[in-house]
Simulated assay, not measured.
Amino acid sequence: MDTKFLESFLIVAECGSVAEAARRLNMTSAAVAQRIKALEIELGQELVSRVGRTVRPTAAGLAVQRHGPALVRAARDLQAIAAGDIPSGQLRLGATATAMTGLIPHITASLSERFRQIDYFLQPGSSVNLYHAVLAGELDAALIIEPQFPIPKAFGWSTIRQEPLVLLAPADLQVEDVYKTLAEQPFIRYDRNQWGGQIVDRYLRGHSLTVREWAELDALDAIAALVDRGLGVALVPDWAPPWPEGLRLQKFQMEDSEPRNLGVLWANSGPRIAAIRAFVEACEDFP
């Protein structure tokens, strides 16, 4: 059995759409449908049924959906076990939105040059969700914001970038005093459900700053775009480039701010530990 066909079925079953599964797999819908059909022929059972525009697993499909992930993990682990201490197999990585664009391309390119036996599964998400995915064994490692609580001893942490808070202001706004600007201008808040947003909230409360908040967003590039259009100011971590192109912004570093620590969280054991350690080293070598 080709485990890639099984993985394709599991993604279709999860999202209930061949088109959405194709988008996630970077394939055509026809190619995904062919994989599902080939798997059905091999197993001798119909695995999915169409209901309108959605796809639902049949009874046989539900059984495969329950046991399939373990088979996929076992096949993935077997490749890494056979390679011994040579980094190989599929490395399942998570990254926040800014890390996915600013760090992951460089790090994985550097790693691929040295270890061509490694292939990658990349999952975007919030630091909170990715943290729990690593602890649950769903991901091998993740580039996230450092949590404000102790990390379990079975997992490792390494800070690779410190991002101070900066005030973003429109290009034509006269800023003589950053605190006065924060108090007087409409304020676009970085979502307090995000660990980075909680750093901003602590800064405002620690400096007894009252802001005229009108929006709260979890996407830093969207916040920067709103500031660019003159819709307010924002306090955000100075995240790794690239930033959205064409923005006309003023950026003022808050000298006394708590930085947002971006780092790598990983599992200290498992069949893919050689590949995980190679990834961590590549992260720590990031310029």
Rank of each mutant, 00 (worst) to 15 (best):
M254W: 02
P287E: 12
T101M: 10
E176S: 15
F115N: 12
A109M: 03
I41M: 07
A80V: 04
Y120V: 11
Q185V: 03
Q174T: 14
L265V: 04
N129K: 03
E138A: 03
W239S: 12
Q79S: 03
N26V: 12
D285T: 10
H132G: 04
S112I: 09
G16C: 06
R248T: 07
L143W: 11
K251Y: 06
A267M: 00
D221S: 04
D191W: 07
N261R: 09
V18H: 06
P271T: 02
R277A: 07
I151W: 00
A63V: 14
F9G: 09
R56M: 13
A224P: 07
S126I: 14
W195S: 02
I276F: 01
G102I: 03
L173T: 01
G89K: 07
V64T: 12
Y120F: 11
G263Q: 00
V64N: 14
R212K: 11
L43E: 10
L62R: 11
T210E: 15
A30Y: 13
L165I: 02
A70E: 12
V280G: 03
T54D: 08
I151C: 10
I11E: 09
L247R: 12
Y190I: 13
L247I: 02
A74Q: 08
Q34S: 15
P287Q: 05
L204C: 10
K37E: 11
P150D: 13
L62F: 05
V211R: 13
A22M: 03
D238C: 09
L265P: 10
R161A: 08
L39S: 01
K4S: 05
D172Y: 08
A63F: 02
E258W: 04
P259M: 14
L168I: 06
V166H: 12
M27Q: 08
E20V: 13
S8I: 02
A80G: 08
R260K: 12
E176L: 10
Q250P: 03
G246F: 05
A99T: 07
V134T: 06
P164D: 12
G196V: 05
P124W: 11
L165H: 01
V72D: 03
R92V: 01
V55N: 07
R161Y: 10
A33V: 04
